[in-house]
């Protein structure tokens, strides 16, 4: 166990408050709640704010616990295309019609 910890810290120093902006598509307040909830479900995400105007999810996360990819996957899993990780059509089609954003990332 001690060995594992040692090797981990021997790699690059991980940022406990890494800021990332992820392009996430969505429409409305309901989308916002869903997106942020999904982001917060990833352990290590400290702050998550999605803004509809610039279609961006602003996250601060502890890189020792989670990666940006984890966040993208979690957000895509609830139906929102996130920084190149696409939501499945099935989940997307089940979104409330108000939330069925234009899938620019899929083209």
């Amino acid at each position: 166990m001690a060995l594992v910890t040692f090797t981990a810290s021997a790699q690059e120093k991980k940022n406990k408050n890494a800021k990332h902006n992820i392009t996430v598509n969505g429409n409305c307040g309901t989308c916002e709640k869903r997106i942020e909830k999904a982001a917060f479900s990833v352990e290590g995400v400290k702050s998550a704010e999605w803004h509809a105007d610039d279609q961006t999810l602003h996250v601060i996360l502890n890189e020792e616990k989670a990666s940006v990819e984890d966040v993208k996957k979690a957000v895509a899993a609830v139906g929102h295309d996130a920084g190149g990780v696409l939501a499945s059509d099935e989940v997307y089609n089940n979104l409330h019609h108000c939330c069925q954003y234009e899938r620019v990332a899929k083209k």
Partner: peptide, 13 residues
Amino acid sequence: MRKIVIVFFLFIG
């Protein structure tokens, strides 16, 4: 109306 709601939530955010 919906727009207002969005603006409102943003403001809260």
